[in-house]
Structures are given as structure tokens and as C-alpha cells.
Nucleic acid binder design. Structure first.
Lengths: 349, 349
DNA sequence: CTGAAAGCGCTTACAG
DNA sequence: CTGAAAGCGCTTACAG
């Protein structure tokens, strides 16, 4: 069954009525609707989305843009799969489908976005890996396309976003470490995305609240990866006044960091306290297992989906766009990598 | 600039000519084409994909279907991100875009596929996590939609596929371990997808070639995850005749397996040899680092893209569809987790 | 080389 | 409650 015409012919009614029945319009005879629905099911008829989109001006799809190179910085692995599941749950209720739009390394993110929106693949967008100054946001605002960002930007005004509580986590980690007696707390950070800046702010706020001096030498800029953690480890080992604790903006770093420390005979958790960002299977299986912060990817996805629905006039007619901003709370999960109290004398070189 | 009509008006030519110029038709005056292209660029005009699709019957997009629950068995996000990059490189040359289509846990894969194809989101498909008996394949063949599968199915006839060399890896791993003196070699496997069956076949072929008996007790069925490795580890520790070596169908398993073994005082690589499937950052940073097999995700993506292009009549008019099948070779990368020769006496309990 | 026109498959005022 | 018709934005024979 290729098109609506054929289905209408088979039922001996007009295509208009078939369309109305299929679209759940109220003004259709109950029996007619039943016949149409049954015939559609029987013949496997589904309206051609191009025809529908052309007529209605929407696509019934929403997109989640991924940047292939940098996404590792938000969690790599299963982060986006977990979030997708939650997004789908919400948007599915509105008969929207989710598609992931991967932007290649070689393509400019704005060019890509412009192309995908111009082609009108999707009715709304979720973008991630938000930068401090992110031209994609200006473009999307100008284009009047409903969108939500995962991650705030520098000014973070005029659009809706959800951001993990990077500042809160860094602050909390510093306070916990300080309470255990640490005085020299390093930050293994990555400021490619804005989240790194926010993380550093929380870190500095924590230092101030704990009455500790901020030593720029303790601010390590590395990649959000196993290798980045290794780089941070080598760097710290080479320092004259070695930190006794380090906070990681990405838990993957712990893998490389542990490796490097152990190679040098420095025991993670015993000779150096380590706190990771997000709890993950990797962090759980590290030995000592990594203290980190927990969040539900599914719930985050649900929140993102709902935020986007709020931006879409067809679903939320009396909602002011760009008005919601959420800092997603995360819960400390104690591992064995930052035991306390810390015995300062036993550690510094 | 909203539509072609407006652009044509601005240039004072017909929309037909604008369209022809934009579509690189040869029968357009050189100067006219130049004017059109410049104006389009200037006003940011991009043809509406719905109009184009409706008229031409294609979408200029290809889809990579992911199953959110089971994809971990192929490697999680990083795997698909790496592959996506390669796919895009190839299909981009034909002005096709790649979108990822995540099928939620709660949705039936065939229903999902049917819906997405009926809506005509994409002109071609790559599906993954192929099962032994995969109804998606019958559906796609019947629908005459160009597609390629990542992973062969049980019969693997009548469609094109690329599969990692699971059989070859298992065979090679057994042979290497046997050559080092191992007699009891376990397999931590996952047969949810067909790859697990193929892996087991290679394992048995290896055992036979090495003159070793196949002990069903050494065939462990676990999840392709950290936790799955832990389960396998606990199981092996509890065995009367403990294996001296184990081959993992997924390298993530090593994380949990190492953990459990170490907890029990069994040293990975020394008291038990371990070989993983795919080399990854995780495997590289394990201590001892995991012997595993290397492949280029990017090249695999390129091959998938090319295979799909071959299936698409508009790009490969004289290609017989469904005729290509590739077993993707993988290269052994020696780590420290399976040193040899093995001293049998020192190990069994 | 260009323009006028048909038509891709749908939805939706409009008339009855 | 239903049908006939317009039109969404594009591409492409066809005529000139």
C-alpha cells in the first residue's frame, strides 16, 4: 500500500476522510475511523513523512546533535545512549522521534547545524558540548528553531538549558577533601567545553570557603580521557610540592591516572586522594573504587525531552521560549579513593 | 530567504532555472549558475528537504540503527562514534547525511524499523547488533530498502554485511594460548547477538586444531560489560578445575574480571591468562594491560559506507544488491595479560 | 539555455 | 460527517 490515494480507493472514501481518520480528528464517523485504522494496519500503510512535512511544515522528529570529536568530554561511552532513552520516552508521547545527528570532526559545527536545520530534518534540537561562547546558540535563536542545550554557555541567557552541577560537584569535592585535611588539592580539568570553566569556578569557590589558597600550578588542563588522566598524573608526580588530592572533571581520567601513579609506586587513595566526576561502571571497578557523583541518565533525558517540548509552540502554546534553566543535582557516592582523615605528614615529598 | 520562489524572484528568473542551477544540471548558462549560487549563499537558502524528497522520492539521508539496550555488546558509544566518522566520510561524497536512529529498549526493533522506513526518513540503512535469526533483515529485503548489516546473521545470504572477524579472533586466541601451554581455556561469551555464536565457533575450531578437548563447563555466558566480566570471574573461581586462561568476547569484561580475580588473590596475567576482543583505551590502561585485537573504527566505517553505496541503485546502477560480505580482519596486539610459556603446575588449585 | 506547468503525498479550510 | 480542491516547496519532462 503505497499512498493514501490507494488506501482511500480500497475503502471507497475520499483521501481527506482517510487523512482525518488517521490524524485522530474528532469530526470523523466512529465506524469510518475504525475501518480506516484497520485497513491501514492491515496494509501496513504509514503516511509519507515528506508529504506530511511539506504540508504541515514540521517533521515530527527532534535531533540530538553530537560532536564526534569532543563528545568524549561529556562522558563518551554510554552517556548519550542512556540520555537518549529518556528523551525518547518523553517525546514519544507526542509522536516525535529522536534522531542523533553526528557532526564529523572535519565539519564546522555551525555549518553542520545550518545545513541540517535548513533541510528541515527536525522540529527541535538538543545540542551538547556547549562552549563558553557558542555560535550555534546564536544561530539557533536567530533561526527561531526550538532548542535546548545540554550545558550552559558563558552568558546562558535567552535560551533553555540543563547543565550538570559541575560547580556544585567541584565545590563539594573540595570541601570534603579539605575537611579530611587536604591542603593542596589539584584539579584535572578540561575547558574545551564550558563545563570546564564552571567546574573551575566551583573549585575556586570551594577553596575560598575552605580557607585554602588557590595555586595556579594545581590547575591542570588535560583531555577528558584515559590519556588525559595519565598526563595529569605525570605532571603531578613531577611537581615539587605535590598535591595530596586531585579532582577529575571526567571519570575516565582516573583510569590513566591510577595507572601512572601505581607505576611510580604512588598508591591511589592512600598516597593521593582522588575524586571523580561521574559514577560509571569504570569508576566502580577501579581499585580502589573511585569516589564520584551519581546521576540518572534516564531522568536527565526525560528532563531534556520535557524542556524541549516546552520550547515547541505546537505543544506548549503559552510557554515563553528560552526561559528555563536547570542545574542538575548530583549525589556524592563514597568510594575508596578519598579516605579520611588525611595524614598530611605522610604524603608530601 | 524562505523558498525557491523568493530566490527566483530576487534574481528575476524562473524557479526551474534556479533549481537546475542548484542541482548542478549541465544545461544552465554559466553566468546564470554563478548568480544563483552566489545569491543562495548570500541569503542562506538551502532547498527544503521535504519538497525535494516528495518530488524525487529520496531523502539524501542514510540511517544507522542502534539498539539502546544491546549496543553495549558491540562497544558502546565510542565504537559507533568512531564508525560514524568513517561512514560520513564516504556518504558525504554523495551528498548524503548520516543520522543515528536509536531504538528504545521498550520498542520492538522491527516495529521501529518499519515506522522509520515507512516515514521515509532515510534512503538506506546500516543496522547493527545482528541476531542469528534477525527479522529486521527479512523486513528490509522485502521492503527493498538498501541496507547493510554490521554483523552477519545465521544464514547471511541475500544481503550485504560486514562482520568483525570474531571466529578468527577466537581461533587465534586459542591457538596462541595453547601454544603457550594452556590446556583449560575458558570463553566468556555473550550470544545475544550472532557474533557470540561465531565467536564460539572459532573457539571450538581453535580447540580442535590445538588438540584440546572442549569442556562445556568452560563456556561462560555473561553480559558484555564490566559486570559480565565479574560474573565470569566469580564463576571461574568457584570451579573445581579452574581454567588457566580465558578469552573475552568484549574487552569491557576485563575490567570486572580483573577486579574479581584480584580480590581473590588471583593475579591476572600471572595466575590466569586473559585475552580480550578489541583493543580500546580501557584495555590499554588495565594492569597488566590486556592483550587484544586491533581494528580501525574509521576504516570500518568507510567500508560500511561504501558497502551501502553499492546497495543504492541511484549510485551504483549496475551493482547486484546483497552480494557483498566482508569479514573484517583484526590484528593481535600483545599485552601483558597472556604471557607465555605457561607453567601449568603453578596454577591449578 | 530558459520558462511554464505538472505532480510528488499529504493536510485542511471550505462547502455541503 | 464527508468530499472536492488548494497548496506546501520542490524537480523535471516538455516546449520553445
Amino acid at each position: 500500500m503505497k499512498d493514501i490515494r490507494e488506501l482511500a480507493q480500497h475503502l471507497d472514501i475520499s483521501i481527506g476522510t482517510v487523512s482525518r481518520a488517521l490524524n485522530n480528528r474528532p469530526d470523523v464517523n466512529k465506524n469510518t475511523r475504525k475501518r480506516v485504522l484497520e485497513a491501514a494496519l492491515q496494509f501496513g500503510y504509514v503516511p509519507n513523512q515528506s508529504g506530511r512535512s511539506l504540508r504541515r511544515g514540521n517533521t515530527n522528529a527532534i535531533g540530538l546533535m553530537l560532536e564526534l570529536g569532543t563528545e568524549a568530554s561529556m562522558g563518551g561511552d554510554n552517556f548519550f545512549m542512556g540520555v537518549s532513552e529518556g528523551i525518547q520516552e518523553v517525546i514519544g508521547r507526542h509522536n516525535l522521534d529522536l534522531i542523533l545527528m553526528p557532526c564529523g570532526l572535519k565539519e564546522d559545527a555551525v555549518d553542520y547545524l545550518q545545513r541540517m536545520t535548513a533541510r528541515r530534518f527536525v522540529d527541535g534540537l538538543i545540542i551538547s558540548a556547549t562552549r563558553y561562547d557558542d555560535p550555534r546558540i546564536d544561530f539557533l535563536i536567530k533561526s527561531k528553531i526550538p532548542f535546548v542545550t545540554l550545558g550552559r554557555s558563558g552568558d546562558s541567557k535567552g535560551f533553555s538549558w540543563i547543565d550538570l552541577d559541575f560547580a556544585g560537584v567541584a565545590y563539594d569535592a573540595v570541601m570534603r577533601l579539605a575537611a579530611k585535611g587536604h591542603r593542596r588539592i589539584a584539579l584535572a580539568n578540561n575547558t574545551t567545553a564550558n563545563l570546564g570553566r564552571v567546574f573551575a569556578e566551583g573549585y575556586h569557590a570551594g577553596l575560598a570557603a575552605a580557607g585554602l589558597d588557590a595555586d595556579p600550578a594545581l590547575l591542570l588542563e588535560v583531555g577528558s580521557s584515559e590519556e588525559g588522566g595519565a598526563v595529569a598524573g605525570r605532571h603531578m608526580l613531577a611537581m615539587d610540592a605535590r598535591p595530596t588530592a586531585v579532582i577529575l572533571v571526567h571519570e575516565l581520567m582516573a583510569v590513566g591516572l591510577y595507572h601512572i601513579l601505581e607505576e611510580a609506586g604512588v598508591r591511589p587513595g592512600e598516597d593521593m586522594a582522588i575524586v571523580g566526576f561521574r559514577e560509571s561502571p569504570h569508576s566502580r571497578f577501579l581499585r580502589p573504587n573511585l569516589s564520584a557523583y551519581r546521576l540518572s541518565l534516564h531522568e536527565l533525558g526525560v528532563a531534556l525531552g520535557e524542556a524541549l517540548i516546552n520550547e515547541m509552540p505546537q505543544f506548549s502554546p503559552d510557554q515563553a521560549p528560552g526561559c528555563s534553566s536547570v542545574i542538575w543535582p548530583m549525589e556524592y557516592l563514597e568510594g575508596m579513593s578519598d579516605p579520611g582523615p588525611w595524614n598530611d605528614s605522610g604524603t608530601a615529598p
